[in-house]
């Protein structure tokens, strides 16, 4: 039941440089799937869209809608590729863990890359850092600094805390949902493989939970993208 992760420690003799090889593998597979699907979808582009192009345009319009909900399209179109990549990457990553979990020996190799707190926090930290970067770039340094003292100067400490809280909640929300899903799925796997009675009792909940995980995966990808754009708009929009 207790699976370990294939961890490689102290790469190149650097004491802090550790790798969880399963994460690296899954990140690579997720990226590859997203890339291949997107490129396949973008093949044979026509004025009159058919088949895969329709799906691609639907996804694009969907993400465009997310951005339009949070900010002006004039600044928002800058973040369209980022939001698209976030959405597709997280969605595919979530789905990979729902489809199956793979265990080789004692190590978990195949799982959602998004069920790892380090990875989700990296994504959320990247979004927050980018929001600060674009906040300064699009509105200027003085406006950016002044924003910490709005609407009231004494809220400054809370504003500082907010930045870290945003990073943490954004990353950990995704991680928590996915990790909980995987834990429950692995528990149900243990139940169904324990015996005939266990199989009879566990099969239906397993199917139900898998369906629910698909739903959660989609919702979480949407929420992550949405909130990323909301935090982005807080920094780059004139009024909020």
């Amino acid at each position: 039941m207790d699976h370990t992760a294939p961890i490689v420690e102290d790469v190149f003799g650097i004491s802090w440089l550790d790798f969880n090889m399963s994460n690296v593998l899954m990140m690579f597979i997720t990226s590859l799937i997203v890339f291949v699907l997107c490129v396949l979808g973008a093949r044979k582009l026509q004025m009159k869209p058919t088949g895969a192009q329709n799906v691609m345009e639907w996804v694009l319009d969907f993400v465009k809608g997310i951005i339009n909900d949070t900010m002006d399209w004039k600044t928002g179109k800058l973040f369209l590729p980022l939001a698209l990549t976030l959405f597709t990457y997280i969605l595919v990553g979530n789905m990979l863990g729902v489809v199956t979990n793979g265990v080789v020996g004692h190590d978990v190799w195949w799982k959602s890359p998004t069920a790892d707190p380090g990875i989700t926090l990296t994504l959320s930290a990247m979004v927050i850092v980018l929001s600060h970067f674009y906040g300064i770039k699009l509105r200027g340094g003085s406006e950016y600094v002044k924003d910490y003292f709005r609407p009231l100067p004494f809220l400054f400490p809370i504003k500082i805390v907010e930045e870290f809280a945003n990073t943490l909640t954004l990353g950990l929300r995704l991680f928590g949902n996915l990790y909980a899903g995987e834990v429950l799925l692995s528990l149900l796997v243990g139940l169904t493989t324990s015996g005939v009675l266990g199989f009879l009792g566990g099969a239906i909940p397993f199917l139900a939970w898998q369906g629910f995980s698909v739903f959660i995966g989609g919702i979480q990808a949407f929420i992550f993208t949405m909130l990323a754009m909301v935090y982005m708009s807080h920094k780059v929009s004139e009024d909020h």
Binding site: A5, I7, V8, V11, W16, L17, D18, F19, N20, S22, N23, V24, M27, D116, P117, G118, I119, T122, Y179
Partner: peptide, 8 residues
């Protein structure tokens, strides 16, 4: 969980 890994 595999913990936090800077490499990851």
């Amino acid at each position: 969980l595999g913990g936090f890994h800077v490499g990851d």
